[in-house]
Nucleic acid binder design. Structure first.
Length: 448
DNA sequence: TCTGGGGTCCTAGGACCC
DNA sequence: TCTGGGGTCCTAGGACCC
């Protein structure tokens, strides 16, 4: 009988690996990459982990450690990572047509395997996994881990196991299908590490003495459904080798576009915060147009830091009169919603210091699904104007043509506090590496 | 007028992922 | 002082109708 198996190809410390590809001199040094705004660590190498630094740690807490051990810190360079990700997928696609790119650093591949000759099939699959590992490394310079199993959830468990192999100095490739130690691997995997089990579920499960993947797999799926819902029921089936989450090859139809950023400093001046809201709206409208979509609903939100006691989170949503991807229409509505949303101080009179603003476009529909009704007031020149705007920004660089309400980088204005407030909401990126693969002027320089 | 049940649709929020 | 962002799916609860 033929069985379908899934291979998970997972890039190791992907963002750090991308930085290392172009900096062979740092191959052995501790490296980490920071989140937007240089906030906290989002990718780190084993050398960095060995210093006791964890994923999600804020930069300011580890500054001394970094100095002491001469560790390297990079701001996130998404142009570079997106391009490297594309190259990795290209390399993977030479092995199969059935590839799902699950995230920027992970892909699943579906394979058929022959049940009748399990021993030789296992050998063949192990060789295949190693072939994928070698190919991706050779073509892109990015080290991956490869794990093959009967379901995606089991492949995820196997991928954790390959980290163990890596520590033992072996090639990080494994085939969990009929693996002699499969039960042992499941019983040493904490339930919190299982794909689909997050913090809240872990707490509940551990309370019921379900601490490992093996114990979760042994539970009765019907009662799991009653108590925890359909999502965890699927996970239990998947751990038992029954596929419930098939390969998703087509690029899923996008349901929403979200855009938000922390400000580089706390803001109280509504005009500055509104600039950020408009800028997010314009960026998102560009994304809509590039994907030939229209939005039917817009949400604007602003909030203060999560880390203060008197946290405020305010949001206002509104449906658009007609579906649109027009920057002018969307930013006009965004401004209105922002004005409804903004409050300067608490009932007790304390001034709110806002740390973040964002917008969400939802209920997206394809451009082709909507024709503007007659007399709707939409002029046919409007999409044309947007197309020209997009073309110019593509050719001359982001924001060469922009809405004045987004604020201008070089016009210093006075904020309410009296300081120079130009683009105070813009992102901090102090440790940025060159965009080696996507911008001509930032190519690697070779000394002769 | 009162009472009840069931279905649908919508929205907000929680939980999860990387 | 400084603590990320973008996305999907499910569920509970309210409003409304029959």
């Amino acid at each position: 009988m033929r069985t379908t198996l899934y291979a998970l190809v997972d890039c190791s410390a992907f963002y750090c690996s991308c930085e290392r590809v172009f900096r062979p001199d740092i191959a052995q040094r501790p490296v980490c990459v920071l989140s937007n705004n240089d906030g906290c660590v989002v990718s780190l190498t084993p050398e960095m982990k060995a210093l006791g630094i964890r994923m999600g740690t804020p930069l300011f807490q580890i500054k001394d450690e970094i100095k002491k051990h001469k560790a390297l810190v990079f701001s996130s360079n998404y142009s570079l990572y997106a391009d490297m990700s594309r190259r990795v997928v290209q390399a993977i696609e030479t092995f199969s047509d059935d590839v799902e790119q699950y995230s920027i650093d992970e892909s699943f591949i579906a394979f058929g395997a022959d049940d009748a000759s399990i021993v030789s099939e296992r050998e063949r699959l192990q060789a295949l996994a190693e072939d994928i590992y070698n190919t991706v490394l050779r073509e892109t310079g990015i080290p991956v881990r490869v794990s093959i199993a009967e379901t995606k959830t089991l492949a995820k468990v196997g991928s954790l196991y390959t980290k163990q192999l890596l520590k033992e100095g072996k090639i990080p490739c494994s085939v969990l299908w009929h693996h002699p130690e499969k039960q042992l691997i499941l019983s040493t995997t904490p339930v919190s590490e299982v794909w689909g089990v997050g913090r809240a579920l872990t707490e509940k499960l551990v309370h019921e003495r379900v601490g490992t993947a093996a114990q979760l797999a042994a539970l009765d799926s019907t009662s799991i459904r009653k108590r925890y819902g359909i999502v965890l029921e699927k996970t239990v089936h998947e751990l038992n080798g029954i596929c419930c989450i098939p390969l998703d090859e087509h690029l899923s139809d996008r349901k929403s576009i979200i855009r938000s950023r922390m400000f580089s400093k706390k803001l109280t001046d509504p005009s500055l915060i509104c600039e950020a809201v408009i800028a997010h709206t314009v960026r998102s409208a560009e994304k809509l147009r590039s994907e030939k979509l229209l939005a039917t609903q817009l949400t604007v939100y602003i909030c203060t830091s999560r880390h203060v006691e008197s946290r405020v989170y305010r949001s206002v949503s509104r449906a658009l009169v007609l579906p649109t991807n027009d920057s002018f229409v969307l930013s006009a509505l965004a401004r209105t919603l922002f004005e409804e949303c903004f409050i300067a101080h608490s009932p007790s009179g304390a001034v709110y210091r806002y740390s973040k603003a964002g917008i969400v476009l939802h209920e997206l529909i394809p451009e082709t699904a909507f024709t503007a009704p007659l007399f709707s007031g939409i002029q046919k020149e409007q999409p044309l104007l947007m197309a020209v705007l997009d073309k110019m920004n593509k050719k001359f660089g982001k924001n060469s043509v922009a809405l004045a309400s987004m604020g201008t980088p070089d016009t210093a204005r006075k904020t309410a506090a009296g300081k120079s407030g130009a683009r105070d909401w813009a992102m901090k990126r102090e440790h940025m590496s060159p965009r080696y693969t996507t911008v001509w002027s930032e190519l690697v320089r070779v000394k002769l």
